[in-house]
Amino acid sequence: MEDVKIIELYYERDKRAIDETAAKYGGLCMSISMNILGVREDAQECVNDTYLRTWESIPPHRPSLLSAFVGKIARNLSINRLSRNTAAKRGGSQGALILDELSGIVSGSGSVEEEAEAKEMIRDINAFIGTLSEEQRYIFLRRYWYCDSIGDIAKSCKKSSNAVTVSLARTRGKLKEYLTERGYDL
């Protein structure tokens, strides 16, 4: 079923909207959640919560890209769960590894808690992503949005794991520089 029709079902408060979303994007949500948490039961709960959250969000939202919309919900729910789940953090899930990688960008002391500042930072992050080459952007988003493993990214873009690791390290360095230049307290 096309996204537009699924969204119409949400607007009509038709429960089939959830079934259609699960059929079409359940795999995507499960993949993101599993990548972050590495524990199937936890991931399944996050995916179920994703459907509920989507039901609560549409309306009023009318997403233009349903895949990104539900994927983002699954991602956020999984990150929240990861921060509560210290066992998963220790367990070497992709989420835990990604947090380790990101710790090289931030100091851990400053904060970007104000909504306005966060929105500005999101704009700058998107502008930064726009400066990347197609391949760098793909690798960066697969790692930090889809939370894929380095090995999976390497396979998908036919590079060695080492090449992907190097690309990510360079992009993280550039992101840090980009945000620091713009005055963020990282």
Partner: peptide, 17 residues
């Protein structure tokens, strides 16, 4: 800034991208 917060903000990447 905490790494968890940056991880969250990266989730707001442009949907087209």
């Amino acid at each position: 800034m905490k790494k968890e917060r940056l991880f969250e903000l990266l989730g707001e990447a442009d949907e087209q991208a």
